[in-house]
Design a protein around this nucleic acid. Sequence first.
DNA 1: CTGAAAGCGCTTACAG
DNA 2: CTGAAAGCGCTTACAG
Lengths: 346, 346
Amino acid sequence: MAEGGGKGRRRAPAGRRASSYDVAALAGVSQSAVSRAFRANAYLSDAMRARVLEAARTLGFRPNAIARSLATRRSGIVAVAIGGIGNPIYPAILDAFGRRLAQEGLEMLLLTGLDDAEEVMARLTGYQTDAVLVTASTRLDSSVQLTRRCQAAGVPVVLFNRVLPDVHVPAVACANREGGRMAAELLLRAGHRHTAFIGGPEETSTVRDRRGGFADTIIAGGAAPPRLEAGPLSYEGGRAALLRLMAGAGPPDAVFCTNDMLAIGAMDAARQVLGLRVPEDLSVIGFDDVPMAAWDSYALTTVRQRTGQMVEAAVALLAAALSGAAPPPVVEVPVDLVARRSVRGS
Amino acid sequence: MAEGGGKGRRRAPAGRRASSYDVAALAGVSQSAVSRAFRANAYLSDAMRARVLEAARTLGFRPNAIARSLATRRSGIVAVAIGGIGNPIYPAILDAFGRRLAQEGLEMLLLTGLDDAEEVMARLTGYQTDAVLVTASTRLDSSVQLTRRCQAAGVPVVLFNRVLPDVHVPAVACANREGGRMAAELLLRAGHRHTAFIGGPEETSTVRDRRGGFADTIIAGGAAPPRLEAGPLSYEGGRAALLRLMAGAGPPDAVFCTNDMLAIGAMDAARQVLGLRVPEDLSVIGFDDVPMAAWDSYALTTVRQRTGQMVEAAVALLAAALSGAAPPPVVEVPVDLVARRSVRGS
DNA sequence: CTGAAAGCGCTTACAG
DNA sequence: CTGAAAGCGCTTACAG
């Protein structure tokens, strides 16, 4: 019954990872003590803890997170619902989010292709996901459904860069209206009177606010209301939208796009298809500040999202939700106008 | 002791998810029967299964994957180790991989920022991850360490677009040498005699093979050996490398880059900084075929990776590994030369 | 501070 | 085909 003895049937079969019982046997303490040695604020004498940790390291023991999850009913896993990673702003966000979560001792489960909210819920609840982050890249109705079902199931949700109508959910967003306003002011200052806005296929809070801030400011500045276009939130979408805009009557001399992909597509259409000069013939402003916006071929003036700060805020909201705190209101993170060379005389 | 009765202390406290015991009580069968009703090929009469499923749906019951994982010692989770999502080829790969995994009933845990293989292993084994996919975006030494440790711990690993020296691991890669050869032949055919190759900061199998296939073919074609440059595998890296190349003695008139980001950076440096024309003054070829390669401003001729096929192969390798099959050899997926407009007269 | 024991919610031999 | 029961590896009241 000495160190090699263990507790009869509790011994780990050869080739299996050591369990807390193996460590307990080796250290000559109870299994509870081993468990306590690995929990932050559990009563345990220093001497005991040292002994346990010593035994644990010689056995290469790591507490089994699955077993812990079952016992605590907390998995330590946060799901990120992302319905298509088309926008190049997401890689950096996912990366930052993953790192921050790791610091909190949480893992990140990536949920892609969210066509069926029902099925996604099944996957979520099956793994007892502690919380879910729904990104703006998810289709609007999927977001709504997923969010409602999570709420019904008691799973904390936080929205990333989207605010949902009629659903009271904590969310982090950038200053969308303010960004639209900044773009409008820059254009007004540059003397533009004929502007246009290119939005997305869905009337999301993000698109609505960016357009609203832009249009209101343009109009308040005494210029004509911006012409409105929309398309898929992609390079192709922006390209096609710009072509439609310029083919119409009274083409604009400046266009503000609801994201950088759209703006880059618009620039390429203007320059490569229509032979226009940017910014001499047409000014273009984007939103996001993806890496490509800084590329020499574009030097796109854009409204930067402070993604690091937004991720930080999202993690804070998540932490609050996990600790059962009252759902905080929408957190708004500031934006910055990054002036490069796609706007005339600025 | 009727339908509401349950089994004494086994009843779920109010507000908690229904468990298999609740379903069993409602259906009037044993808990084992409930368990069997949710497993694919378990012996259970149709009548019984129907009764269980009926009760399950009225209670909104879903088997708890955490508990199942503990019992089966299989978590149903595959980890994807990705050390930085800088290359825009990854979003689509992650997306496809996630979908395929979901079809297999597997979840995807994203592991970002893999500085410390030790810590990553702790996270992996803690959640009893069934397998891990290590992508080429991970630093070479991290890949090696992580792979070795997984092997030591008995966790199946498959490498994505990388082959490791001295480590026998299943891997899927594209035809890197062949891709290099295709690029060289195109350049030779266009009459180029002074070529260069821009590689990465690390001597990975990927870079080595692409360069090897390229250089061998160029030399076999009777042209001078390509000049060699390297830099971070990014837009900035390609930009800087091209500038160094053109500043040196005997600047090349064609450059093959080990990935598209490098190639796009090189094109921008050539055109926007040096005022050269592409392809008239300089031909450029990339590798990957990221979405940006098709943008009008670049129209980059490149070697396309069949990512869909590669993901498919990776899932097959994973499945084989999970079922304990013998580690298959390296699977090589073909590549395609996508001729756009960045190579002279072709 | 420490240990014995029940419980988290499943799966799966083992008997019928 | 069906059920009783042990076990997966932890956590955490409950007693000392």
